[in-house]
Design a protein around this nucleic acid. Structure first.
Lengths: 215, 215
DNA sequence: TAGATTGTTAATCGATTAACAATC
DNA sequence: TAGATTGTTAATCGATTAACAATC
């Protein structure tokens, strides 16, 4: 499944790749065709050396004396990240967070297509979220069997049952995007990307109290 | 403003501290009084050595032969993170994301109190979000002058004006929690915690394609 | 050609892990 | 006391930066 053209990179590199991808998209939108590692490094607040090191890990995308071709590089990074295919995504939890994610158009632009949204709250079942209709969680298994989604989003406020993740993996879910408090663990080694909002906010609190006046 | 009891730590350590805090809270809720670094490390999937190293950075919270007192340690970490005070938080953007954040009760439990929510959409002005009433962004400056909030959340779908952040800093905002695409830069060195959801989702895509079968 | 900028190696820096003495 | 587990130092590992030769 991995793009055999590129060797596997450490996660720190990948996280930075997603940032480069965003900046390159911005540059492309403003019509800029070429960019140097030093220009990008200044914009992004990192070292030019790091950018070149990161990119060179996957092969030579640049040209001496010229720099990098913005669109070409952007496409290459897209390929590395796996954005050259589509992902069917289901959302578990049709609260405000589920809504926010389902309606955020940037995701679909990158190939993430929301195909189902589920909840247990009877007031929500049948209501519309964009193009989708909220389904009952009882229908989740049947849905997965027939539609084979790739990614499951845990947008539930509280902890879901731990067995649910295991069940979903057996139904073919290949990755989890987890906004819930719960830790997701499955017998198969399926990747889980956690977005722990409280942890992010607490980090901000620390920084507010400890970074001021710093340059 | 920083808690003078504790020296300033690298951000990687702080991020882990927030995780320890979460796990300790869980342990505390299930009535467990003491915990060892090795037990915690197994639960969390890290090394016991790292936990001890992290905690020892701030001083000796444990006791040889016994381990750590859960509540005591949790409180100490809370103090380090700055959760021993209250933060007044305003939300910019009353869409689904703004709603989700405002209504998430876990934040207020940790001292983050939402005091205002703003939008430019006339259909939203005056509507209720929990206890709050959505205000027009035109009223933002007056609000800040009188209420002096600490944290501003950028929950806008698109990019806001870059000058807005600068203006908010001059009005006393001490930190930003940024969900928008935009990079927030201000003349004063005010901390910005970014939650770039697309980057997180793209990382998941990479991992789906490159981690499978791994143990 | 000269200038610019990459690709790439080597040096540095910081973070993680291992190990064990201290001590409850 | 003996056992358990921290506190802490030293060793290892990995990531970042600096430097410069290669080359467009």
């Amino acid at each position: 499944m991995a793009n055999p053209k590129y060797k596997k990179a450490p996660l720190v590199v990948i996280k930075r790749l997603t940032k480069y991808y965003r900046y390159l998209g911005d540059l492309s939108n403003t019509g800029i065709e070429r960019v140097s590692s030093s220009y990008l490094s200044e914009k992004m607040g990192c070292t030019a050396s790091q950018i070149r090191q990161d990119l060179n890990f996957f092969g030579g995308f640049g040209q001496q004396g010229y720099g990098y071709h913005v669109k070409q590089l952007s496409n290459a990074i897209g390929d590395i990240l796996g954005l050259d295919r589509k992902y069917s995504v289901i959302i578990l939890g049709a609260g405000y967070l589920g809504h926010a994610l389902a309606k955020y158009s940037n995701f679909s632009k990158r190939g993430f297509v929301f195909t189902g949204i589920f909840d247990i709250n009877p007031d929500l079942i049948g209501t519309k979220v964009g193009d989708l209709t909220v389904m009952h969680t009882d229908d989740l298994i049947d849905f997965c069997k027939s539609k084979k989604p790739d990614i499951a989003v845990f947008a539930l406020p509280k902890t879901a049952s731990p067995e649910l993740a295991e069940q979903l993996v057996n139904l073919g879910i290949k990755g989890f995007w987890n906004f819930s408090h719960m830790d997701i663990q499955t017998s198969k080694n399926v990747p889980v990307e956690n977005v722990h909002l409280s942890e992010s906010l607490m980090t901000l609190a620390y920084r507010i109290n400890n970074e001021e006046d710093e340059q």
